[in-house]
Design a protein around this nucleic acid. Sequence first.
DNA 1: TTTTGGCACTCTTCGCACGCGAGTGCCAGT
DNA 2: ACTGGCACTCGCGTGCGAAGAGTGCCAAAA
Lengths: 338, 338
Amino acid sequence: MLSERRLQVLRAIVQDYVGTEEPVGSKALTERHNLGVSPATVRNDMAALEDEGFIAQPHTSAGRIPTDKGYRLFVDKLAGVKPMTAPERRAIQNFLEGAVDLDDVVARTVRLLAQLTRQVAVVQYPSLTRSTVRHVELLSMAPARAMLVLITDTGRVEQRMVDCPAPIGEATLADLRARLNSRVAGRRFTDVPSLVEDLPEGFDPEERGTVSTVLSTLLETLVEENEERLMIGGTANLTRFGHDFPLVIRPVLEALEEQVVLLKLLGEAKDPGVTVRIGHENAHEGLNSTSVVSVGYGSGGEAVAKLGVVGPTRMDYPGTMGAVRAVARYVGQILAES
Amino acid sequence: MLSERRLQVLRAIVQDYVGTEEPVGSKALTERHNLGVSPATVRNDMAALEDEGFIAQPHTSAGRIPTDKGYRLFVDKLAGVKPMTAPERRAIQNFLEGAVDLDDVVARTVRLLAQLTRQVAVVQYPSLTRSTVRHVELLSMAPARAMLVLITDTGRVEQRMVDCPAPIGEATLADLRARLNSRVAGRRFTDVPSLVEDLPEGFDPEERGTVSTVLSTLLETLVEENEERLMIGGTANLTRFGHDFPLVIRPVLEALEEQVVLLKLLGEAKDPGVTVRIGHENAHEGLNSTSVVSVGYGSGGEAVAKLGVVGPTRMDYPGTMGAVRAVARYVGQILAES
DNA sequence: TTTTGGCACTCTTCGCACGCGAGTGCCAGT
DNA sequence: ACTGGCACTCGCGTGCGAAGAGTGCCAAAA
């Protein structure tokens, strides 16, 4: 087990390294933090910490830098979440309240997160399994062509063209719309398939083809709606990665363009609070030199989506976690109001 | 005036520099291109080209690199557009044909462009002044709350909540929907305001407030719809910018996040064909070391939006222009079909 | 007049040696 | 268990010299 002071030394190393971006040595440590012991003692502690794998030295005779494992310990045991100051919280709230619709909320959230953390922000659109259908609309576009519009309780709208096997009359369409809505309005996505299963039976045989075409399109749309989208921003902050960044930045940019990767990344975090994944803890290897700080957010008490930031492992964890948590909280409020 | 051979020298310099990314000297030039003259002659020509401002040398006693003005001449007079090969064209077509809806078309186009040109791709969503309204839908959400859904001929759907001053009945809503559609369906965005101007007059006095609220929301939505959106991709290709890129890449990333900037950028290109803006020709100073190759595309003969790529001034102009033109052409086809 | 070969000159780049300084590890002493 | 001292290791910056690429200019040839 590591003594209390050794943990303090680790904490000091992380803090200094995050600040200076340079390997930190024993002497500098004792000067900047008053640990009450001499450099020699600190050296012993550092040697122990290195044995345990919490810190490492880039080359012999250079200072130490924290390893992923070191950051992990720091995050878990040595540092809390740094709450936002009152003015910051007000600024967040004000900025988010200016949003006019869902897209705008997400867009503003991304900007805000990127600005607060000076890192790359990722925000998932709210939706998914807990979503319910608010309304389904059917419009006739051409004799054998209809448009299906799906509106969800989170305010998202999805449309799809439906090519019918046979011409369809306005009356039938209106009838179908009415029946459809009476069954699925207010219901969860996941419940819809079983609710509409027997719907074609209520129609004339020659219309059933059309009805089931419409229904299967609806089901498809629901599934696609489940495949969540997300928005990213603040990629310019990637330039903060460090001097060696040309090699690091490329896989990160590639990963950020693969929405699938990001969604998986956010999805992995099951923790109810703020989740931190450090360096190699990220499954995607392009992100092995980054840390991801994420948290769920949602309108009610339930989390309906995730948001977070991607930055260098050498980041200000307490501050970032604080910002992410605060933003999630206020976005939740905004969503609940609208 | 510049002699024919001097232009050939400039062309050779541009080609070599684009290929090698290194300043090109007189000797290397005569070796790689058989100009039929000696290095000394080429040196004289280079001196003349430098006097005219087409090329420059980074330091004394290094090779020459083209200036923005040099690239400009190259693009205008010395190089044509390199057409895509037949297999490439087939690949483009196949890839785009897999798209399921408008978003997907745009997304695929971005990927395609980024891959073909190995640069950052920008695609504007089709829409704008020539767009027409396909359908307007009104849904009751709560007693005094309605949802307005706007569907355009390009397949885009926009929705907006409307808070009414007074409760509104289903019947009134249906009535309004019918009247609204009979007036605006099929009409251009720009014509809508005058078409609905006198609509409230057909309603009971106590309903007029609600009606005009709905109408003004509709007009707002149309305006916002006009503010076009765009999608970008291939940012990982920014790492191709060169060795010195840390400083260059940052303003570019910042510019790419400002959709307004990009829209202005694309909007500036009035040329009916492929437009190339080189280096300082770009108004936004973050993009002063990039070139933008763009072109309009559209479903019919008319261009409804733009697409293009952003890359280093040192780029393969003929190839890039060919790729951009080809993609625009096939996207137009796809849009026309759907 | 244009082209060419030659030549001197300018700079950048690279390798190398050197010294400095930060930092380490170890050990003996408190 | 902590501390001070000491020898050792490297990385990093500096200065110098050689190499090489490229230029500009000039006088001769076409």
